[in-house]
């Protein structure tokens, strides 16, 4: 498969920690110190406590397994049309939450439900100085 040209992610103050973490090569998740909930995607509040005070970021292992996936053979959108077929997947992280991603650097036929994968970070060419990267996954 050809390389995907990922559309650039943009951050709000709620999600900045996640994207800056990716820029450092870290998969960053949020945990509520009050109730222990690990939540993804990141938010300005713990959705169970509805409070912002107890939230912290932590570096996750970057390990997980494929929950389900599809081999996309048609997508007209820029950045993806030339990359078809590509593997889009939900990965269940070892820390609990599931994350939408793509599985790269492998043959589509090698991907299976339940297979172990590891996070990898794709740097972005961007002119706004944001130090972000896009987390993708590779077979472990």
């Amino acid at each position: 498969m050809n390389e995907i040209k990922h559309p650039l992610p943009y951050a709000s103050w709620e999600t900045r920690g996640y994207w800056e973490g990716a820029g450092r090569g870290e998969l960053v998740l949020q945990r509520c110190l009050q109730c222990g909930l690990v939540q993804h995607r990141p938010r300005g509040i713990c959705v169970h406590c509805l409070e912002s005070g107890g939230l912290e970021h932590f570096v996750a292992s970057g390990n997980g397994e494929v929950y389900t996936f599809t081999v996309t053979e048609q997508n007209q959108a820029r950045g993806f049309a030339e990359a078809c077929p590509y593997v889009m997947a939900y990965v269940t992280l070892d820390e609990g939450p599931r994350i939408l991603t793509v599985i790269t650097d492998c043959a589509a036929d090698d991907v299976a439900v339940g297979i172990r994968v590891k996070a990898h970070f794709v740097d972005q060419e961007r002119d706004d100085g944001e130090p972000f990267a896009v987390p993708v996954f590779r077979l472990d």
Binding site: P7, Y10, W19, Q74, A77, A83
Partner: peptide, 23 residues
Amino acid sequence: GGSGGSRNPDTAFSSPYGMTTVG
């Protein structure tokens, strides 16, 4: 025709990954 990207932080967790309706 999904996931062409936008400057919206709310779609940043799907748009980099080429989510389509059929996908």
